[in-house]
C-alpha cells in the first residue's frame, strides 16, 4: 500500500488513514528516509489521528523512524495519538523516549517543530 508523503515548506507530513501491515510500515520507513534525503526536509510530522489501534510493532517503528530521521538531521513529531491508544500503549508497558516530540494535533505539531528548530538555531548562533 502506498502512503502519500506530503511536503509543506520545510516539513514532510505523513497521515495514516487506515491500519497498516507490518510490511507496509517497513516500506514506509524506507520511503520516508529516501524522501528526507531528497527534499532535505527539516521536520517530519507523522499524524496518526485516524488510528484506533496501535500495536507495539507500530510504536517501535514510529520511534525508530524518529531516531533515523534524527541521524539525517530531521526532527520528528508524532501527532494525534488518541487517548485510548495512549492508555493501551502505557498499559502494554511501552515507554516513549523523553526526547520524542508529540503533539495533540497537526497544527500544534507543526508549531512545536518550528519552535524546536528555532531554539536549536538560537543555540547554534550563541
Amino acid at each position: 500500500m502506498d502512503i502519500p508523503i506530503l511536503k509543506i515548506e520545510d516539513f514532510l507530513i505523513i497521515s495514516f488513514q487506515n491500519e497498516l501491515s507490518d510490511h507496509d510500515l517497513e516500506e514506509l520507513r524506507e520511503n520516508v528516509l529516501e524522501h528526507i534525503k531528497k527534499t532535505n526536509a527539516k521536520g517530519l510530522v507523522i499524524d496518526i489521528t485516524a488510528l484506533g489501534i496501535v500495536d507495539s510493532f507500530m510504536a517501535r517503528t514510529l520511534s525508530s523512524i524518529s531516531d533515523m530521521a534524527a541521524l539525517l538531521g530531521t526532527k520528528t513529531v508524532i501527532v494525534g495519538i488518541q487517548p485510548a491508544v495512549a492508555l493501551t500503549l502505557v498499559e502494554l508497558g511501552l515507554r516513549i523516549k523523553w526526547k520524542l516530540l508529540t503533539a495533540l494535533n497537526l497544527e500544534k505539531g507543526i508549531n512545536l517543530l518550528r519552535k524546536s528548530i528555532e531554539s536549536e538555531k538560537e543555540i547554534a548562533h550563541d
Binding site: V90, T102, A103, L104
Partner: peptide
C-alpha cells in the same frame, strides 16, 4: 507517559 503521548 500517556499525557506526553498527547503532547502535554
Amino acid at each position: 507517559q500517556a499525557s506526553k503521548m498527547l503532547g502535554a
